[in-house]
Design a binder for these strands. Structure first.
Lengths: 195, 195, 195, 195
DNA sequence: TATGAATGAGTATTCATTCAT
DNA sequence: TATGAATGAATACTCATTCAT
């Protein structure tokens, strides 16, 4: 990809370089994605106290590049959360309420950082739009479940969201195994069905 | 405040003393408590990232005093947790399972730091004994509830603990109002009762 | 050595103590010596950066007692040195020049702290009197050696002191084994004899 | 200061650049050197207990810059030592054994920190390679001196190194004047020559 | 006189952020 | 636009010294 040639004279070394013009938008986009992936991995592994420098290292870019794409560390964390919420919305479209619960809880550990951030761990991040989208999606699942008689009519969206958030955090921090997760969700599902 | 009497024999003087524990220990104990209280408040307000200096300032002692009582920041955090767990155990003795759930969740926000630490937020704190005591206490409540027919026999202790931890975190981070808390717990209680 | 008896009543514990009057001067002297010994051991093991607290611990006294006997850490260090110098003067009286050299160098490692302090490692300690005494003693050994024809007449006291100090430090920090020590001293002894 | 020329062909633009090494690397190297110089001066003046802040201040950089170049204080101290050892090896190439001794001892005071570190003053620094190079260089000087009959054949390298180290420390800490230094070395040189 | 709790200045080190190249 | 060197405020922790008991 390099078009350089090198010439040496008495005292100096000269290099002939093909100047390719400004890096393409595509490169920048790729960098942005690599940084986000690296950040998700690093923060999941070491917590949000991990250094931005470590994120840059894992992403294979210089620290300045991280700050060009995300002007502050909080911006970077917010971006991770936004991506998680978008994924959840998308997944809500492919599941019924119970399956969505199960799937989401199972993924909680993998999405450690985002779940923590959702929980508001110190970092000041507000993503009302993204959260509203998720709430809408879950609302639809709840309506469907109630229409099918699988959930009691007395149940409302706020407590479903509250339960979802709670169990995600519980699973994440409690280090639940599959069995414990199943038994815990069973209690909640049973509660949603009974009056 | 002194309860000493003095007796003199041939060569010696004898003194009858009320043993109140080592001297100055009283002051030190007061400082220890003040530091713990200050730390609980500071960490609840700013998260565990808050500085030890801030804790000292709020406790009205010099920084060295904090470190004399708690040789590392983690020791301080562990002490906060231990105190919370002891309180919970004690409260478990005064409630039935449902009341304990409700009471504990309602207090979650007030005990922000401790709940976060229980959740394992980055800080490496292990209090297996204190946790085991709590589990025992909740186990007794569960047995009583099942004996009274208030909870299905299929329910086991691990999921009860998991639900308790989950809902505490949910309540804490979600900023639930009383109504939302009641409705969310209602679902869980209903799930514990139904098969 | 304790003359206490303990009685317990309903709520309180009572102790009957033999009050022995103010601690004897002898106790204080014993403490002073214990502190010096502890300090020598601690500073030899960890260097003069070791904490005064550690010295107190090893001496089995409280930190305040150390500072009562030695108002500052430098005073403590100076006392160690003074003791070493007095020992050296005393040993000079029992050896000829070569034996004194050998003996002193062999002990250098054991007296690590004092040797370091003599070398002036950062700490500001001046003990002109004690040093003068040592110089006098070594001067006498030199005169005897020269009178016996064992050392060249051209040799003067300052370089003998300089060589002694140098080799002590060399031995101390170089971790010499016995053989290396012997061979190194042999060169110096040979230099003192030859013209 | 730029030596670029630009050429344009059909689709591309070519630029002929004088390669001066990686950008900013020049500044960084200058800073590294300034920090090392400052550290040598500061530690020589106040001992290795002097603060890294003081080094930064004297070097005219921010504290973070010192730690970017030398991740720990020990790394900084080790770098100073390495530089001294390299200088000594180089100087060994320009002197005979006696001149090297004299020169090195005369410089001891100027290189206070390094000499102290060589002596192992508390700081944990190991530079086996650099030390081995110096030993090799001194070994060559010894061979030459013995071949020329200026040093007795019975003398071996270890005691020569031991004497060098000892006298450096002696000179450093004893605050020898030129005359004392000459007289002390005279004894040693005489010892090396005689059997 | 001994104790040991309290003080508080000082130290090494980290890390988000800026900016010259 | 990317790089990575520089910045400097912040932080956990240490330790000589003081002083109330």
């Amino acid at each position: 990809m390099s078009h350089d040639s090198t010439y040496t004279t008495e005292n100096n070394e000269w290099r002939l370089t093909l100047v390719e013009g400004p890096p393409l938008r595509a490169d920048a986009q790729r960098n942005r994605a690599r940084i986000l992936d690296a950040a998700e991995a690093v923060f999941a592994e070491f917590g949000t106290r991990a250094s931005t420098e470590e994120v840059a290292r894992r992403a294979g870019v210089a620290i300045g590049t991280v700050f060009r794409h995300f002007p502050s560390k909080d911006d970077l964390l917010a971006a991770i959360m936004k991506r998680l919420l978008a994924q959840l919305v998308e997944e809500a479209g492919r599941h019924d309420l119970f399956a969505f619960f199960t799937h989401t809880v199972a993924q909680a550990a993998a999405k450690k950082t985002a779940v923590d951030l959702l929980a508001g761990s110190g970092v000041d991040i507000r993503l009302p739009d993204a959260l509203a989208h998720l709430e809408e999606a879950v609302g639809r699942l709840l309506e469907q479940a109630q229409a099918a008689g699988a959930v009691a009519d007395s149940v409302r969206l706020p407590e479903v969201m509250a339960l979802l958030a709670s169990v995600c955090q519980g699973a994440l921090h409690g280090g639940w195994n599959e069995q414990l997760q199943a038994r815990t969700l069973a209690v909640i599902f049973s509660g949603l069905k009974c009056d």
